[in-house]
């Protein structure tokens, strides 16, 4: 690895100053499980690593049933599913948080990092899209919010300016009769990158789908929000036929490539299978959540 410097700001303000000074030749590190690998591979040409783990706001988890969840960008995965209130309120998020990497990676990796890394295969992004999440960003001119589905702008590219830092993620409080699920397909049972993934959420109303959101991993340059899949089934009964409609739309919306992890055909096929299975689980969860 070429020489880098290392900064440990203790406030968001300080971090923004350091980033501004670095003029785009810096990246923020949370758990480092993606960043250090990318630096060794020469993916980023930077001079400075800014460690976000000493900034209080990046390490906080706050949840209440009215305002929802605010999750510091550097909170490691194990602390998310270790938080009973969060685990109960957002099982669809926990699905993803508990399958990113193995035990050792879970001690470091964060959902903020997963989002900023902005790979198409990021497991936590589809469920956060499905759960209507937003990213809280701080910069020299104050704070701004970006919807999760708008955050990734290309492969490993995101909406952050070079002088901005992702402070936290926000998910609205779950409403009654709602349910969510994220599943991915990997060839092994652990330690793999998603060949494809599906994150979905539904809200039921007397046995009908009131609202649904579908998002896919690993089948486009960015995590894909398939709004038309959810829109097409709003108002329809929560049954196999409805689920099939949405999963068919998801399959058709996928724009995968063929690479070492899967072919175009296999990934399109998986989008249908995974969306169907995830919707069925989300509907079951919604029925239990009343």
């Amino acid at each position: 690895m070429k020489w880098i410097d290392y900064a440990t700001p203790h406030s968001v303000r300080e971090a923004v100053d350091v980033l501004s000074e670095a003029g785009g030749r810096a990246r923020v590190m949370a758990g480092g499980t993606d960043l250090l690998v990318a630096l060794r591979a020469g993916v980023y040409d930077i001079d400075l690593v800014v460690d976000g783990k000493n900034i209080p706001e990046l390490n906080e988890i706050t949840y209440d049933p009215t305002n929802g969840l605010t999750l510091g960008a550097a909170v490691p995965c194990y602390k998310i599913y270790g938080n009973q209130a969060v685990a109960t309120a957002y099982p669809g998020l926990i699905d993803a948080a508990s399958l990113i990497g193995g035990t050792q990676i879970q001690g470091r990796a964060s959902l903020g990092g997963n989002l900023c890394n902005a790979t198409p295969s990021a497991d936590s992004i589809p469920p956060m899209i499905a759960l209507n999440g937003t990213a809280n960003i701080a910069g020299p001119n104050g704070n701004r919010q970006v919807a999760i589905e708008d955050f990734c702008t290309g492969v490993r590219q995101n909406a952050l300016g070079s002088d901005e830092i992702l402070v936290s993620l926000h998910l609205p409080a779950p409403v009654a009769n709602s349910g969510a699920n994220y599943i991915r397909f990997i060839p092994r049972n652990e330690m793999d990158i998603a060949v494809a993934g599906a994150g979905v959420s539904v809200v039921l109303d007397n046995g009908d789908i009131k609202e649904a959101r579908v998002s896919l991993a690993s089948v486009a340059p960015t995590p894909l929000f398939v709004q038309e899949a959810g829109d097409a089934i709003a108002g329809k009964p929560a049954n196999d036929e409805t689920v099939r409609i949405a999963s068919g739309i998801a399959r058709d919306a996928a724009r995968p490539i063929t690479d070492m992890r899967g072919t175009i055909e296999f990934r399109q096929h998986l989008c249908e299978v995974l969306t169907r299975r995830a919707l069925n689980t989300a509907i079951e969860r919604a029925k239990e959540n009343n």
Binding site: G102, P187, R188, N189, E190, M191, D192, I193, D259, M260
Partner: peptide
């Protein structure tokens, strides 16, 4: 060879 890591050269884990 594209899959030059133990992430993508998939040897069995204990869970498999």
């Amino acid at each position: 060879m594209d899959n030059v890591s133990l992430l993508d050269y998939r040897m069995p884990t204990s869970l498999d």
